[in-house]
Design a protein around this nucleic acid. Sequence first.
RNA 1: GGGCCAGUAGCUCAGUGGUAGAGCAGGGGACUUUUAAUCCUCGUGUCGAAGGUUCGAUCCCUUCCUGGCUCACCA
Length: 498
Amino acid sequence: MEHPMTEAGTRIPTRVPEWARKVAEGLGGGPHVVVSGISVSGNIHAGNLREVLVAEAVAEALRERGERVRFIFHADTIDPLRKIAPGIPESYEEFIGHSLSRVPDPEGCHVSYAEHFLAPFEEALREMDMDIEVLRSHELYERGVYTEVTREALDRTEDLRLILQDVTNRKMPGHWSPFSPRSSSGKLTGMRVLEHVPGRTSVVFAGEDGFEEAADYSKGEGKLGWRVELAARWKALGVTFEPFGKDHTTSGGSTETADRMAREVFGYPVPGRYEYEWIGLKGRGDMSSSRGIVLLPKDLLRIMPPDAVRRIILGRDPARRFDLDLGEGFPRFMDEFRAEGGWEHPVPFIHLVTVAQTVGENVDAAAGMLSRGGYERAARNPEELARWLAYARNWAREWAPEGMKIGLLSPEESRELAAGLDDDQRDYLAAVAGEIGPDLDGDGVQDLLYSTAVGRGLKPKRAFAAVYKVLLGKTSGPKAGPFIAGLPPEEVRRRFRL
RNA sequence: GGGCCAGUAGCUCAGUGGUAGAGCAGGGGACUUUUAAUCCUCGUGUCGAAGGUUCGAUCCCUUCCUGGCUCACCA
């Protein structure tokens, strides 16, 4: 798979990170099935994306080696709704215990609760040009993909129960079953399984009201419990690699259980694994839907291209925790990203931010400003430029520290603020206005601003302060010469003649 | 309590069995020009602590200390 990386728009292959290559080396011969599984009980955020990207990197490493790879995103759509997330109506209380795929979308825009959160994520994956297959667990159950493993699990209920007790150190209730049937009410939780009828791929159970019901597990009328399902899924899908977050790999955790179940019950070798650490948001802590700290993949795609998302989310090494800095440190990240990506003559991101904020959506104006600033090359590709201006503009609006946000004042606003200047400063601006013209480049303007100030006995500091005040309403700003040279001269004159 | 990870210059981190580096910040200087501007120049820090292995360890082993994370289907 390839991704656009260069300014000219040519495509060069995604670089496979070293750590991924090493992981792939330990995986043996193919064909491979690489899986990343994520819950759709809430926003699928940029942290979740890390898991998918880890899986992608390993899949790429395998492909690079010539293996056949099936890369799957497994969405846990059949899982029951567990609690009412913030922002979800209280009335959803009645759906607790129901499959996310069968709960209505709280905002009414998708066919289900699950789809509401899955769809935007899927879209982001598409936008990232990811070669991935998205599977919905409720469909897998309905299609019978899990029928065999479910039967096996039911037949080996006792063994599974022992493993579960052993690993978690908890006593499971006597009526414990690896399978949770769905009752006629729609609930998946709290049913008591009474009997397994393998011939009919069915389970007889006591419903909430005590009456007996039956569920056909070949039709998705229920699901395996999480830890059992994990092991069962490996077998059913032939999984050979799956990354896990720290929460699952802890001792007594779900992977420890599933590993034993796979080996001892399902007779399936434990897939290769990579344990990744979590990422936080600088200054805000770990991502958490319930605490409102949510960064969506789409938020990232608004301020950087897909490969930059890959880079920033994976970091140097996904086994290491780190905090995303989308504020002050972001421009540097972007410059590094492009330097490594082989960009020729990239415009410093911070400069793009200045340009984007000055010209708004006007790409021609931006191109003009850039070429006058010495970045003719970047000005030559309007499409590419428009894309990058959008990144810069979005970043400035959504993430930039206050000090970096600028906006050219309207002539009226300029006039108002000019009232706060003293006569020396106004006279100075007027003098500059008389000299400024299209023939001056950035250095020329800088020179003009400085020498005019000195020539009139005005301290440069106060001179520049006046310039920024009238243009931006601030006392400092981007380097004045190139900035002003990029503006249409008449606009500058209008604001300087007071 | 169990598990995992980290502890190297002010900050963020690289790093190798032979006594340590980068970026940023910061100091100084240059360009008649302080700025989200270029160039030049400046870093002896007990490489968390103590033992051990070794001719020799920051890098290997052990223990400990400190911090972080995780152990409820929230990556």
